[in-house]
């Protein structure tokens, strides 16, 4: 088999895995602390990409990198306060449906505002060029994007394990009642976590914009791997989510060699296999509402 091809696929898999992990962590935090399936997480990602595209075209690349995620975070604040807050503690289907409906409506808004055509972001000058190792050639921009994603992941990892807020968030994933019992403000915590999830989705959008074509349905496409990785990695474990992301990303990418047309299936099959044997996920410490009995 062709080594350079394998190497390129491996690199693609790592890049893919890292971005998916960024999306998965945001989804996972909201799922854990809010006990809510946020199907608008993909939409927030899409908005991240569109904001980044529009701002970078009208101002500068770096302003867009900063501004796009912040705008998405503000949007998610709005979404939480107006809608999601009302379904906490209710049937999980309600949270799923309300965010699903919101996402569908807003995707339509995107099509009304930006049109149906797909956009693409051009590579900034500093990132042009190739990484060359012997006869292996790889886009330098992709590597920079992967490093950016990795930085975000490590920051979240540090934040969750070393700061006191991170500790509270973790406790919230184990037992949200405990949060109130300890005297913390659970509604506020849920809002903050939701906004944090939005910020991460926005950042993922910034990374995803140059990689994939920007269109209204792009969020739906990454939402699936996002939630799959969240469940495979295990709720409450950032480390698990990163490892899960890389695992799913690399496997999906390398699967091209075996089942070229059906690679999209890989994440789903992995999810079902993992949850069948390890219901809490690979590194999960929490069982949420999942099992009838142990």
């Amino acid at each position: 088999m062709n080594t350079t091809l394998c190497l390129a696929l491996l690199f693609n898999g790592i890049v893919l895995g890292l971005i998916w992990s960024v999306i998965a962590i945001g989804f996972s935090l909201v799922l854990g602390v809010g006990q809510t399936i946020n199907f608008a997480h993909g939409l927030l990602f899409t908005f991240g990409a569109y904001f980044f595209f529009s701002i970078s075209r009208n101002t500068s690349f770096w302003i867009a990198v900063i501004a796009a995620p912040i705008l998405v975070a503000i949007m998610s604040l709005f979404l939480e306060v107006v809608l999601v807050r009302r379904v906490y503690g209710q049937d999980p289907l309600f949270g799923l449906l309300i965010t699903f409906g919101f996402a569908i409506a807003m995707e339509e808004v995107i099509r009304m505002v930006w049109g149906k055509a797909a956009y693409s972001v051009s590579t900034p000058i500093f990132a042009r060029g190739q990484l060359i190792l012997g006869n292996f050639v790889y886009s330098r921009f992709r590597i920079l994007l992967a490093l950016f994603a990795l930085t975000i992941l490590l920051l979240v990892l540090w934040f969750m394990s070393k700061t006191s807020f991170g500790a509270i968030v973790k406790a919230g994933m184990f037992n949200s009642e405990m949060i109130s019992a300890l005297g913390h403000n659970l509604p506020l915590l849920r809002t903050l976590v939701f906004v944090m999830g939005g910020l991460l989705a926005g950042l993922a959008g910034v990374i995803g914009a140059p990689l994939w074509s920007i269109k209204s349905g792009m969020g739906t496409d990454v939402l699936m791997p996002g939630f799959i990785i969240a469940l495979i990695g295990g709720l409450g474990s950032i480390k698990g989510t990163i490892i899960g992301g890389l695992l799913v990303g690399i496997t999906t990418s390398l699967a091209v060699l075996v089942i070229p047309r059906f690679t999209d299936i890989i994440p789903y099959v992995m999810l079902i296999a993992v949850l069948f044997y390890k219901p809490k996920g690979l590194y999960g410490e929490v069982t949420i509402l999942g099992e009838v009995r142990e």
Binding site: M224, D264, V269, I272, L275, I288, L289, G290, E291
Partner: peptide
């Protein structure tokens, strides 16, 4: 058989996952 023990959020997400497997097959084959 695979998901009979799952409830709530997990049940939702696993049914979504299965539906997507069939979708990919339908779309690609």
């Amino acid at each position: 058989f695979i998901i009979k023990k799952k409830r709530g959020i997990y049940f939702s997400l696993l049914t979504v996952a299965f539906s997507q497997i069939l979708y990919v097959i339908g779309f690609r084959w």
